[in-house]
Design a protein around this nucleic acid. Sequence first.
DNA 1: TTTTTCTGTTTGACATATCAAACACCTGTC
DNA 2: GACAGGTGTTTGATATGTCAAACAGAAAAA
Lengths: 141, 141
Amino acid sequence: METWKEFEANELTHSAAHHLLAIHELGEEYGGWARVSDIARELGITRGSVSINLRAIKKRGYVVTDEHRMVKLSPKGLEVVQAIKTKKTLFKSFLTDVLGVSEQQAEIDSCKVEHLISHETSEQLARFVEQFKNSQLTHSQ
Amino acid sequence: METWKEFEANELTHSAAHHLLAIHELGEEYGGWARVSDIARELGITRGSVSINLRAIKKRGYVVTDEHRMVKLSPKGLEVVQAIKTKKTLFKSFLTDVLGVSEQQAEIDSCKVEHLISHETSEQLARFVEQFKNSQLTHSQ
DNA sequence: TTTTTCTGTTTGACATATCAAACACCTGTC
DNA sequence: GACAGGTGTTTGATATGTCAAACAGAAAAA
């Protein structure tokens, strides 16, 4: 089959997703604005790499820049960041709270998978995790 | 932090994993042996790409070749293929049977994730899915 | 046997993602 | 104002993974 090629058909690569997540994280204290240097430091890669990567990310409409070369997520960028963060939180919570996977491993696994999980799976997982937590509450009373 | 770089630290890339899976699949009728052409056809990429990719995969000890350029998984290759197949089956079963995700979407999601799931998560997932299926049986009686 | 087709490899190209190093431009400090 | 340091970009390099096209050799068909 060719299902395996879907892997390359994701909206964002792992790298691009983490550039956006870093901007979101860094921007929190500065009205959403972040600098190339800080993104590079956050990701542990060089300023040069970030500069090049942002060119493509900007071209695709996920970030905007101002006259001082500050970087900010576009509405579209913010949307995908929020979706990814939701998926990560959900999946990690499933791993630790439902499966009992260690916190460290759950962090690694959910980070690898956060940008790959479909909307459908995400929704069903949300429903399931909520239901699970409710039933846990009930049983413990 | 730098957890995000773990993504690149996997034993196999998605592409390499699927080369191994294809060899395993094709080899079933020929004592494990497969041809470059058939692998390429199976994956939907060119013979040239497979030829180049196999060079690296062979160098890393996942496959062996004979004098007729036939390709076969090494014991190490077979081991990782089996681990990946187990993870995929498990995760897909979780998605469809537990979460109620559609078959098509479950196929796509599990294919994206099969080579990324840790051993720890895989084991806990196996335990959970088995338990879930048992409880389903009990309730339906 | 000759010719055609198929096979595996190689080459040159492109895309992504990284690095180090050089560069130009600011922004401080003295 | 000069000089030091930080910032963003660019360039040249490497690695992976893909393509198309050219090639040589093997197999199949005529």
